[in-house]
Amino acid sequence: MGPKLLQLCTLLPSTHDKLAAHYEVHQWPAEAAREEWLRDNASGVRAVVTGGHLGITNEMIDRLPDLGIVAINGVGYDRVDLDHAKAAGVRLTNTPDVLTDDVADLAVALMLNVMRRLPAADRHVRDGLWPHGPQALTRRASGRRYGIVGLGRIGHAIAERLAGFGGRIAYSGPNRKPVDHDYHADVAALAAKSDVLFVATAASAATRALIDRAVLDALGPEGVLINVARGSVIDEDALVAALAEGRLGGAGLDVFVDEPHVPETLLGLENVVLAPHVGSATRETREAMGNLMLDNLDAFFAGRPLPTPVV
């Protein structure tokens, strides 16, 4: 039996099988049973596997006295207090790069699906409306001004894909990058010069509600917002109001502030495409993420350098 490990998130069956072959895997129980579980089992837990959207609380870290590593099966680590983990002597790993392409694909897919209203078109057919008349005309997606908030790995991959659509690409972020695209230090300035604004920045205290009413108004009634980052990067109330009042043209959202809860108003809007946080949720990518997460765990317990450490 390998090291004792606590699993907080769901995993692909194939990833779970590989994990179970080398670790003593314990599933995190339902809420009512957690206190008892911790009392009886906390001792000896040396590793936690969690998702980027779940992370781990400081309290949980404190209650696992033998914890050595938290392995995130995801790229985002905004739900982990890095300073606290460091102080507790806990290593933290994530799974960058392997999900970049799928998330970038999804971002461009959202843009095309919002502007051409494809899910609404599918509803038009499935609801039997087509024989009674065509779907309303939609808007062109190519040849537009595309703004990317955060030209990191995923932002860069989005830019690569957009290069095939004959538009103009600009970006914002804390630093200018060695690329040809126009740079705006200010997000509102970028939004004012964009028809479509892609949010691909990491979530942090500095980017909390970065996309606020001023940015949305700069994007304007013809503008489209795509968010594949984290819900917290956007002032969601301001976004919902802008969409409902027609001050923003449309939105494609894969992430929300309080997942899996989606603001009720969004559900009634036709100018939005809503996805249940599936940016990296393909079989191929989840398999690759699982393998990288396992590599990190194996390296930790073998005393080798971690492939993709955060802390």
């Binding site: 461009v108 897919a109 095309l112 699906n113 494809l118 899910p119 997606a141 495409v273 996805a275």
Partner: peptide
């Protein structure tokens, strides 16, 4: 391309 990605990623 939009339809291809919508089909692969099962948007509707």
């Amino acid at each position: 391309v939009g339809l291809l990605l919508a089909t692969l990623r099962r948007f509707p």
